[in-house]
Amino acid sequence: MTKLDINLNVNGETYPIKVEARRTLADALRDDCGLTGTHLGCEHGVCGACTVLVDDQPVRACLGFAVQFEGSQIRTVEGLADGDELHPLQQAFWDHHGLQCGFCTPGFLMLAVAVLEKNPDIDDGELRRALASNLCRCTGYQNIVKAVRAAAGAMKR
């Protein structure tokens, strides 16, 4: 299959890459842009590990093809920290033991960033419903909810 020349804008940087049309956004980020922070779990849109932001909205990167996202602003977990300073959500995950093995963490972080940026005053029920999008095989859900709740306060400040 022929490869297509495309430009992906990720975390404010342009990545000129050459990919087959069948290359998913998740694989393009990992293998062509070298941004391996985005993880792939189920590869069929169930686990949420590959969640990234496209134009500030959360999407499952395994369910889109890289060629579809030329012209979009993509954000991944690599774009969260400011140098050595963790993003408030990353810090809250650390402080509240929101990660165990860490595999699902990038997906949860990007999902939660999108949710809190849109609605920092989200109530507990809505927050739990939103976080139900992603799976954590360590089943550390309580601490993930605690971490996101704490980050909501920190992000408002």
């Binding site: 849109g45 949420g48 969640t51 909205q57 959360p58 999407v59 499952r60 369910l63 889109g64 999902l111 999108a114 949710v115 939103a130 139900a132 999008s133």
Partner: peptide, 8 residues
């Protein structure tokens, strides 16, 4: 589904 599914 969930938020990321409803977005797309």
């Amino acid at each position: 589904g969930h938020l990321p599914i409803r977005v797309r």
